[in-house]
């Protein structure tokens, strides 16, 4: 199965560890990966700020770049950015040049954990992590992409990992893209409540499927001088892997 990596600008700029873990997991699970070099950004920063004229060029570039390979699927390490790709057909529905391409892109784009769980059908990625962790559910992944199950199901099967539920899972962490820089006064109060909720779980590790939320929450942890380890779900699923333990849906457990 051929997979084009939708790396996202945040991972390209700041978090090589996330991209690397995602590629390693996908290849371990039998995917042949490629990285379209002309991709830049899904366009949320400008589109969500109201700069729609400027955003169209960003969309065109991203569509052309991500469709430039013969990949069967396009997989990215961020629920929010993938949700944006899925909105392209709606935004560009009256665009004669791009409406069809936008649909093609949306149809084959998946967030990493969603792809592993729903498309590859993996329930246990064979990973091991000795830690107490909690999971931050990103708003866009949950509400716009509609993926509520995959990350929890995959994390449940990580060996030695104890997942503790996060209170107020439903509340936004206060990132919101440019919201976090334009409205720091409100964003601060939101991320503080999130940090408090995470501390209340006693977790040592905070996991999420969106690097941007982690960058926000982790950045506030650091400013408040509170301890936490930040891990993207791809890093967790890539940790201490015993390939013999990899298990697929509907596959009987072998002892």
């Amino acid at each position: 199965m051929k997979v084009a990596i939708f790396s996202t600008c945040v991972v390209d700029l700041l978090f090589p560890n996330v991209g690397q873990a995602m590629v390693e997991v996908l290849e371990r699970l039998g995917c042949e990966t490629s990285l379209p070099t002309n991709q830049v950004c899904c366009g949320q920063p400008t589109y969500n700020s109201g700069y729609h004229k400027e955003s169209n060029k960003v969309f065109y570039n991203e569509i052309d770049a991500l469709l430039s390979t013969d990949a069967d699927y396009i997989v990215g390490p961020a629920g929010s950015c993938v949700a944006m790709l899925r909105q392209y057909p709606h935004i560009l529905k009256d665009n004669p040049d791009y409406s069809k391409k936008a649909q093609e892109l949306a149809d084959k784009s998946y967030e990493f954990s969603q792809f592993v769980y729903n498309i590859l059908g993996v329930v246990d990625a064979g990973a091991q992590l000795n830690a107490v962790a909690t999971y931050h559910r990103s708003c866009h992944m949950t509400r716009l992409l509609g993926e509520k199950t995959a990350p929890f199901a995959l994390l449940d099967n990580v060996k030695d990992l104890k997942m503790v539920p996060l209170p107020h899972l439903e509340n936004c962490c206060g990132f919101g893209g440019t919201f976090s820089v334009k409205e720091p006064e409100i964003s601060k109060q939101m991320v503080d409540e999130k940090v408090d909720s995470i501390i209340s779980t006693g977790a040592q590790v905070l996991i999420s499927a969106d690097a941007s939320c982690l960058m926000n929450i982790g950045g506030r942890f650091s400013r408040r001088n509170e301890n936490i380890k930040i891990m993207h779900i791809a890093e967790v699923l890539n940790h201490n892997v015993d390939a013999s333990r990899i298990r697929y849906k509907n596959q009987p457990t072998t002892v």
């Binding site: 920063p45 400027e54 060029k57």
Partner: peptide, 11 residues
Amino acid sequence: MKGAGVATSSP
């Protein structure tokens, strides 16, 4: 922001 639009559309 307009600059960001240009930058994020240019590989």
